[in-house]
Design a protein around this nucleic acid. Structure first.
Lengths: 161, 161
DNA sequence: GTGTTATAGTTTAAATATAAAGGAATTATA
DNA sequence: TATAATTCCTTTATATTTAAACTATAACAC
């Protein structure tokens, strides 16, 4: 292998790296659009996500953080801001006094009812460059990739260290 | 359409939304792994990204921020930290005195040489749940989606407001 | 029961991201 | 050339993220 092709080998050019680079870029662009959409509603992306996971009956904070793939400590401040805006409440769980339940208020439910359908329509519209079949195919591939990521594949680690 | 299916319609369940949710989750997982990998090298993800874009001759900060799909103001502090670690330098552009060139130092190049191949190997390994053909297919779909996102599709906006 | 361990949530400090404003230098235009 | 508009970068304030330490509660072992 020549010196010239060597560079491109170590640098980029594998389908895996290209796919991953694209995935990151798409995620960035979608976040930019989402942020812009939510801005007029005075909500940030993580605030909107918590609203989506909260229910009137209340959901444990750690359940939300698990679904959002983040740490509990992230959510404390975000929930504080949502409380100050009147969209959620904190209630202690009578079953387990360590747990605090995040409860969607009436105002929060109203807000969500207004924003969510539009958000979903936006997401669908922004993927219109793919046909229905292509979207399904993409979903299937991402599903498979996601499942494969669940098990960190501890083997082969030594081969590369 | 019944009330019961109505909920799932407005809530989730379209291939587009499922695909986007998976894309976000995959991105999160990959970031977690990348962060963990870089931790032992005392680098954060954005620091590593800047190192990858910097060259010995120097690259304008705004060129890096454009490629990273972020604002210039993000990079000021990150570059400061990379400078204090000795991996890059700021040099004024003689052609345009507004521009500050981000230059990779010898130490930065060494660091990169050591980390980058391993990082790429990790990314490839983490996508092993897909076959070579599937990876290529995924890359093509993401490529098409990414290109479609470039043009924000201003039309049809009114139809959903 | 007592000690150990695990879990739920918060707090803190450091790093990053966003939005807005500002300073310096360049470019466009009259 | 004088002025306006633009570009490049930094600074500021606020929000978020990460990692680590900490409190309170629960579960478990003996």
């Amino acid at each position: 292998m020549s010196v010239i092709t060597d560079r491109s080998t170590s640098d980029q050019a594998s389908p895996e790296l290209e796919a991953y680079a694209l995935l990151r870029q798409i995620n960035s662009m979608m976040e930019m659009y989402n942020r812009y959409d939510l801005r007029s509603e005075d909500l940030t992306i993580p605030q909107f996500m918590i609203l989506n996971y909260a229910t009137a009956e209340g959901v444990p904070l750690s359940e939300i953080s698990m679904r959002m793939l983040c740490d509990n400590s992230n959510l404390t401040g975000i929930v504080d801001r949502l409380i100050s805006k009147g969209f959620v409440e904190r209630r202690p769980d009578p079953q387990d006094r360590r747990v605090s339940l995040i409860c969607l208020t009436g105002a929060g439910a109203d807000k969500l009812r207004r924003i969510k359908p539009r958000h979903h329509a936006h997401v669908r519209r922004r993927m219109r460059s793919l046909s229905q079949d292509q979207v399904s195919e993409l979903r299937n591939l991402l599903q498979q990739l996601f499942q494969g990521l669940q098990i960190p594949a501890v083997d082969d680690e030594s081969r590369e260290a």
